[in-house]
Amino acid sequence: MINKKILMLFLLISAEPCYSQSAFREGQGMWLMFFNRTQLTEKWSIHSEIQDRAYDLSHKNEQLLIRAGMNYHLKKNLWLTGGYGYIESYSLAGDQLPTVSEHRVWQQGLYYHNLGRLFIEHRGRLEQRFVGDNYRDRVRYRLMINIPLNKSSMQANTVFISTYNEIFYHLEKNPYDRNRFYTAVGYQFNKAVNLQTGWLAQDFNGKTKGYLQLALFANLFLDGS
């Protein structure tokens, strides 16, 4: 079992040196993110998020992403989701109006499990993207690991490390779209709220750029759980 843990951590963390040097050459962007899951019943919950993405630390607009979906909990550790996203992208010149608007329909599956103190999430996502006048299909896979540092599990008052790698492919002749590697430190205040700050390296169009990230996760439990 310990060998599996070491291998999984190595596969994720070893990606970082491949990105870090080239990412800093491209400058640093910033993502501010808010995520919410509202639990309606034992089987149903609503996902919502907003992400404000900037080209640089002065917060020059790069992209605004708003996404929502409905989760169906097949099991405690297996969820299916369908939803919609709206994305505005802005030019590097700093124009106030978006240069491209995208409407996105998406479906995903989430599977959670743990190996000792490693809390692992597998996420597969399909996207139907209406980008301006174009249509594109995309598939994504993300492997994420959360590691509590001062507790044995992800519970109230837990300091943790979060890391993931996600790869994107279009269903086209040249399928590769991008890859993201993320690492962060977070604090789980209680069952509903955690805050994370970290760094993401995104490989896209032959270049890798780094983004500082701040993410707030704040959930609601209307089912009384």
Rank of each mutant, 00 (worst) to 15 (best):
E88Y: 05
I87K: 08
E16N: 13
F24V: 13
D223E: 09
K76L: 07
K5G: 08
R104I: 05
N190A: 02
S101V: 14
I2G: 14
A23P: 12
Q155N: 12
N194K: 05
I66Y: 05
S20F: 12
L200M: 14
L200A: 05
L65D: 10
Y182K: 00
R25C: 09
L12D: 07
E42A: 10
A93P: 10
W44V: 13
R138E: 15
G198N: 02
W44M: 11
A15Q: 13
H113W: 15
M144T: 08
L214A: 09
E62N: 13
S225N: 11
Q108N: 13
Q63P: 01
K173R: 14
Q213M: 11
F10Y: 13
E102Y: 03
G109Y: 08
V139Y: 04
I167F: 01
V193T: 15
R104E: 13
Q128K: 09
M1K: 13
L110P: 00
L216M: 07
G94D: 10
Q108G: 12
K151P: 03
N205C: 05
I167R: 00
L222V: 01
R125A: 01
V185K: 02
E172N: 07
F130N: 12
N146Y: 00
E62Q: 15
L7D: 11
F24N: 11
A68M: 12
V131T: 13
R140D: 02
I145D: 02
L195S: 05
F119T: 06
I50D: 08
F130D: 11
Y187K: 02
S89Y: 04
N61I: 09
N150W: 00
W106G: 03
A192K: 09
L7P: 09
L11P: 12
L200C: 07
I46L: 14
S153V: 09
E172R: 01
K5S: 12
A23S: 14
Y182G: 00
M1S: 13
L80F: 14
S45K: 04
A184Q: 04
N114Y: 06
T163L: 06
T208G: 00
K76V: 02
L149D: 07
E49I: 03
F217Y: 15
A15D: 08
T208N: 02
E172V: 02
R180N: 10
F24T: 12
G186F: 01
M154D: 06
P98E: 14
Y211G: 01
P17Q: 02
N146I: 04
A192G: 05
Y90E: 07
A218E: 11
F217L: 06
T41N: 03
F181P: 01
W44N: 10
K151Q: 12
W79C: 01
N61M: 10
E102C: 07
N174C: 04
Q202V: 00
